[in-house]
């Protein structure tokens, strides 16, 4: 049991526990006291909720669409592969493999010898030496025939097992390919929908310099979906990233995420954000430190006015 003084001391330190600020031994000591009081448990739970909520207050950083799709594909492929491996190992324990089949073959062959030697006393009992000598004569041939038959059966079984393994490999490859294709199709469908819907407004963004970089923003005003495609925009340098901004009529700059371009200067960025049609004044891209900035600090590289 804990004393009121101990509970008071723990109550004061509960934020330290919720934030994970305490050394393990101290945290354990406090938790043992928390466990004795429902009010301390409730207070700790609500403080932990507040602490966890901090994760939702970070600036948006959507993953570039191509890298997001690639990561999804890797995860799905890995999950499917592990699942298939697991299923295979389970079935192996139930189904004899080539090795386990071979073992009884040899044991069966070896068992012929004691059976043969055991037949001698039995034959002596019934005393029919003529038939005995016949059996003795054909026994080696029977043994060879049985061994050959077993060998052929094992060979055939191994062949069947190999065919089964080949079929399983083909199925695994096909499943992975189907998953990949399905993921790519879903991304393509999503992009097509985001760029071609009846409610999509297009904002052309042009470079502020004479060079070629440019971008188009597709704004689905019903789904509140923003899809931006860049071209000829060189990759941001080491420790830098591009950041997309929605500029409102009141000159607020809203970050729509950070991104980088591929070797051909392309990037596809998607975000969902609710903004009334009349509130959008412009869209711009700046270069910022990695991780993005709360407000633009770099020069505007590409921009487009929402004049429509």
């Amino acid at each position: 049991m804990s004393t009121p003084n101990e509970r008071d001391e723990v109550f004061v330190a509960l934020p330290d526990l919720a934030l994970g600020l305490l050394p393990a031994a101290e945290a354990e000591r406090l938790m043992s006291i928390v466990a004795t009081s429902q009010s301390l448990q409730a207070e700790l739970a609500s403080l932990r909720g507040a602490s966890n909520a901090l994760a939702h207050g970070v600036p948006a950083a959507p993953i570039a669409a191509d890298r997001k799709a690639a990561m999804r594909e890797r995860l799905m492929t890995r999950a499917v592969s592990v699942k298939l491996d697991s299923a295979e190992s389970t079935s192996t324990t139930r189904t004899p493999t080539g090795t386990t089949v071979t073992t009884p073959t040899f044991s069966a062959t070896l068992k012929l010898e004691p059976r043969e030697s055991r037949s001698t006393p039995i034959i002596r009992e019934v005393q029919i030496p003529a038939r005995l000598s016949l059996v003795q004569r054909i026994s080696p041939f029977l043994a060879i025939a049985a061994t050959v038959a077993f060998g052929l059966a094992v060979f055939r079984l191994q062949d069947i097992m190999q065919q089964r393994n080949d079929a399983e490999d083909a199925l695994r490859v096909a499943t992975v390919e189907a998953t990949r294709t399905s993921a790519q199709l879903a991304i393509s469908d999503s992009l097509i929908a985001a760029m071609s819907g009846a409610n999509v407004r297009v904002v052309d963004m042009v470079s502020t310099k004479k060079l070629a970089p440019g971008a188009k923003m597709f704004w689905d005003r019903v789904a509140n979906r923003w899809t931006m495609v860049t071209h000829d925009l060189p990759s941001a340098g080491e420790g830098r990233t591009y950041q997309l901004w929605l500029v409102t009529a009141r000159a607020e700059k809203i970050s729509a995420g950070t991104f980088n371009t591929d070797a051909r200067g392309r990037a596809v960025v998607q975000a969902t954000y609710v903004l009334a049609a009349r509130d959008l004044a412009a869209i711009a891209i700046t270069e910022e430190p990695t991780g993005g900035s709360p407000q633009p600090t770099g020069t505007i590289l590409v921009a487009g006015a929402a004049t429509q």
């Binding site: 939702h56 600036p59 509140n224 975000a271 969902t272 991780g291």
Partner: peptide, 29 residues
């Protein structure tokens, strides 16, 4: 230095609920 100030307005997340959450957290901070 990059994170000295929280953004003045909510940041786009993947859906509206997330927007609301982000906005509340930023406001509380």
């Amino acid at each position: 230095s990059v994170f000295d100030n929280q953004p003045a307005v909510g940041d786009p997340l993947s859906e509206l609920d997330a927007n609301e959450r982000a906005s509340r957290v930023v406001s509380a901070l």
